[in-house]
């Protein structure tokens, strides 16, 4: 079972996101004033500065905007993973998140920009939270 680095708290902006993740729900913010989709979580709207950001649930589907297959990482949490896929995924609701794409037989050949992906909440060996990663649809 993976044992990824965990977010650290107290951290008020990102806390609601991770509480949702505990319930296997991917969430994002949207501005109540100008409707801008905001991600990563924060206090003020990145378009108009309003503090009226509301949390929304994502369906957890999107496409790979770009990726890299990481071959070397000296961080102990990732050193022994083998080649793994780091990616930016564009969710259908309009936000871009960093993630890993998992469950690929050969990450060196079987992944492409533009592929459709769906969120999976990956249980961890230790740590309080599952981690939202993505699988090919």
């Amino acid at each position: 079972m993976p044992d990824r680095s965990m977010p650290q708290f107290p951290e008020p902006d990102t806390s609601p996101f991770w509480e949702s993740v505990k319930n296997e729900q991917l969430s994002y913010q949207q501005c109540n004033v100008c409707n801008t989709v905001v991600f990563y979580p924060r206090y003020a709207c990145s378009s108009c500065g309003s503090g009226e950001l509301v949390w929304k649930d994502s369906k957890g589907e999107g496409e790979i905007y770009t990726y890299s297959v990481v071959r070397q990482n000296r961080n102990p949490a990732f050193a022994d993973l083998g080649a793994y896929v780091l990616a930016y995924v564009d969710l259908d609701e309009g936000f871009r998140m960093m993630t890993n794409v998992v469950g690929i037989k050969n990450p060196l050949t079987d992944i492409k920009i533009g592929q459709r992906v769906k969120v999976k909440f990956e249980k961890q060996e230790s740590g309080e939270f599952p981690v939202p990663v993505f699988e090919l649809i």
Partner: peptide, 28 residues
């Protein structure tokens, strides 16, 4: 190749779990 996200702030908390290295960020 040491990993760029230590966790504990608004950005790092959203990236620390994914094993981003500095090189892999440029590679994307």
């Amino acid at each position: 190749t040491g990993g760029v996200s230590g966790g504990g702030n608004w950005q790092a908390n959203m990236e620390a779990s994914y094993g981003q290295t500095l090189i892999s960020n440029y590679a994307m």
